[in-house]
Amino acid sequence: MAQVTFGDRATQYRTIRVTHQVKTNLDRLTQEVATGHTTDTAKAVAGNLTPLAGMKRALSTLSSYAIANTEAELAATSMQSVLSTISDYSSEMGTTLLTASQVSQSVTTNATASQARGQFDAIVSAINTRVASRSLFAGVATDANPLADTDTLIADLRVATAAATTASEVVAAVTAWFDDSGGGFETSGYLGSTTPASAFRLSDRERTTLAITAHDQEFRDVLKGFAIAALVDDGVLSGDEPERAQLLSLAGQQILTGEGALANLRSRIGAAEQQIELAKTHNAAEIASYETAIGGMLEIDTFASASALTQVQTQLETIYTITARLSNLNLSDYL
């Protein structure tokens, strides 16, 4: 009876094919044991991929909301930090100005006014804070500083108060500059947009808007008080010590009044922070739910896969051993 055998070349190709198949199985089983999920998704869902695709799409959407939540949280936290800084400066400086005004001595007046000017610089710098290269208080004009620098503000106010001869007249001129529609603050002091920044979409059901800009009256009221005190440092009413002391008193009162109004802004941001936190918690729960459901659909028997992996490793080792032995065969050894 004739016997069919493989030639050397055919044997080589067969060995390569078997080795490749075993290596492929080894890679597949290694991945499955490592992840606990099957690599054959279609087989796991019996060919019906629609539910799985829907859950993965929902998971992707929730992940994008998670990014938006993080951005919203960063913006709200940064805004709250800036307002806290302004509030701290205002509380301290307001009291200091009122105390200094009672002394009515040029040395005290000059030192206190100089301190107020420094804090005015710090407050304007804080309001111009940027997070991730975006201004916090410039509305939709996130690429612009909301306020002009303090040198510009003081220069404009110096012109506005040039005709003033009493503390009350200086305050009236500064108030008009800040508060009048189309006045100096709106034309050259505020550089941002009056349109609030776009809302953050926290989920498919919720949005939050941090609709606070340096154009808001609460900011103007605080800036007004510091600007009045800074004008004393700039030399307004120079030589009239009683009126300069009175100006510090009026500046202190204005700052404390403005500081109280800041609580309204901080409360609004606090409400937004709470909304963001709740949305984050809800989205995280949904993400966990979808991940669990997807994991359940693709889950494998890890014990069976580990056993199969051991068998495939043994197969591969056997192939390598046989190949090594065959490569050492020499016809002359048998002649």
Results as ranks from 00 to 15, higher is better:
276 I>C: 05
61 T>Q: 15
180 D>G: 01
277 E>I: 07
26 L>F: 03
132 A>S: 14
31 Q>S: 14
220 R>D: 11
17 R>K: 11
244 R>I: 13
184 G>I: 07
5 T>A: 12
68 A>V: 06
162 A>T: 10
327 S>F: 01
201 R>N: 03
255 I>E: 00
268 R>F: 00
119 Q>D: 11
262 L>H: 02
330 N>S: 12
96 T>W: 06
35 T>E: 07
214 A>E: 12
18 V>G: 01
189 G>S: 07
322 I>V: 15
201 R>C: 01
326 L>M: 13
268 R>D: 15
22 V>M: 04
160 A>C: 03
34 A>M: 09
312 V>K: 01
59 L>K: 03
44 A>I: 06
95 T>K: 13
76 A>W: 14
54 G>Y: 08
170 V>N: 13
202 L>Q: 04
135 S>W: 01
238 S>W: 04
290 Y>R: 12
37 H>K: 13
332 S>Q: 14
80 Q>A: 12
240 D>C: 02
27 D>R: 11
241 E>C: 05
244 R>W: 12
75 A>V: 13
89 Y>W: 08
146 P>D: 08
251 A>F: 05
116 A>D: 02
262 L>Q: 05
182 G>M: 09
9 R>N: 12
284 A>V: 06
134 R>K: 15
180 D>P: 03
316 L>N: 11
129 T>G: 00
39 T>W: 00
224 K>V: 10
51 P>V: 02
242 P>C: 13
93 M>D: 03
186 E>D: 12
166 T>A: 05
185 F>N: 06
221 D>P: 10
214 A>I: 06
83 L>S: 04
4 V>I: 11
